[in-house]
């Protein structure tokens, strides 16, 4: 388990100081995958480095399994870091070591005997599906394979927390999917808490239990993935949902974004149409499975004068509804 408590990182001093992380608070339970997304420069990498204390936080605490890392001296910190596995975007493999020797690195640092080291490394490479590549050097591996070696290395000391900073960025969709699958399996088997930092929204939807959006060093929005996906008013939900193709509403018609999950019976459109006494048009829709649950979003069109009756009826049917153009709702992308 990992808790951030008012975590703050300021670079520089005086007038030139920039606050990169601004009093962050969140918690990742054992067995939970927590994704952090955000634009370039939001402070994502700084967050990863501060959590493993590669960068000392300016203030606030990082608590891993109940131990406050910020209170530790260098030597104790070294021991505590062994509870945290880190996967780097650049894979960070040592170019003059084979895959097996790279995985063995944390074990060497710890002083594990060569015999035990061999057994453990073989186990780890087997786990990430790279037993056949044990003797290969990094330049002889594909990007996805290198990332797997990086994951095996991060797991070498049996950590309880895994930090992944852009672990799948730059990989092709197939490699990304296999890394995502591997991380999920590892979470299930080992009960890892995973902090998954990325800018790729589709990866988050495949993987995360909860998501936070980091912006200018603050958490602008956060929540359970499913809640965010079915909330049409959520900026983060909109970012996470792939752009939905559709057509614009006719003049005089009201466009309404709705979203729903599996609990809503599939004939909701017919039921609501009957209840309101008018045909609702579908301008665009997307229905998919996320973590085994159905998540649907749609943009509907209805005569504008029905607005007052339609919205309560949609709500009664269990859908979240949000008229397009009202307040600060983000407009869905409309392909004309």
């Amino acid at each position: 388990m990992i808790q951030l408590d008012q975590l703050t990182k300021v670079y520089g001093h005086g007038a030139g100081a920039t606050t990169v992380l601004d009093h962050l608070d969140f918690e990742i339970a054992a067995g939970e995958i927590f994704a952090v997304v955000g634009p370039s420069g939001a402070g994502k990498s700084t967050l990863a480095q501060t959590v493993s204390l590669l960068e000392r936080p300016t203030s606030g605490r990082v608590v891993v399994n109940g131990a406050d890392l910020t209170a530790l001296g260098e030597r104790e910190l070294r021991a505590a870091r062994r509870r945290i596995g880190t996967i780097f975007q650049s894979d960070g493999l040592f170019s003059r070591r084979t895959a097996a020797q790279n995985v063995a690195l944390p074990l060497e640092f710890l002083g594990v005997t060569p015999g035990e080291r061999r057994t453990r490394v073989a186990e780890l490479l087997e786990r990430v599906g790279l037993s056949a590549k044990a003797g290969h050097y990094p330049h002889q591996l594909s990007g996805g394979q290198r990332q797997r070696v990086g994951i095996a290395r991060a797991l070498a000391l049996r950590p309880s927390v895994l930090l992944a900073d852009e672990a799948t960025s730059g990989l092709d969709p197939a490699s990304t999917a296999s890394i995502v699958g591997l991380l999920k399996e590892l979470r299930d088997e080992l009960g890892l808490s995973i902090l998954f930092i990325t800018h790729e929204m589709d990866t988050v939807v495949q993987l995360a239990d909860a998501v936070a959006r980091l912006d200018h060093g603050r958490i602008a929005e956060s929540g359970r993935l499913l809640d965010l996906l079915r909330d049409p008013a959520s900026v983060l939900g909109t970012l996470l949902r792939p752009p939905q193709p559709g057509v614009p509403a006719a003049p005089g018609e009201l466009a309404i974004d709705v979203s729903y999950t599996g609990e809503v019976a599939g004939d909701w459109l017919a039921r609501v149409s009957r209840a309101v006494g008018a045909d609702l048009h579908v301008l665009g829709a997307r229905i998919e499975q996320v973590h085994g649950e159905t998540v649907g979003t749609a943009r509907l069109a209805a005569p504008a004068e029905l607005r007052g009756r339609l919205l309560p009826l949609l709500a009664a049917a269990g859908l979240s509804a949000h008229p397009v153009g009202s307040d600060a709702a983000p407009a869905l992308e409309v392909v004309a």
Partner: peptide
């Protein structure tokens, strides 16, 4: 990033310099 990897893997300063 090599040094950061080593530190994150629990290396002492001497181990970082060497490996």
């Amino acid at each position: 990033d090599r040094a950061r990897v080593a530190i994150a893997s629990g290396a002492s300063p001497v181990q970082v310099i060497r490996s």
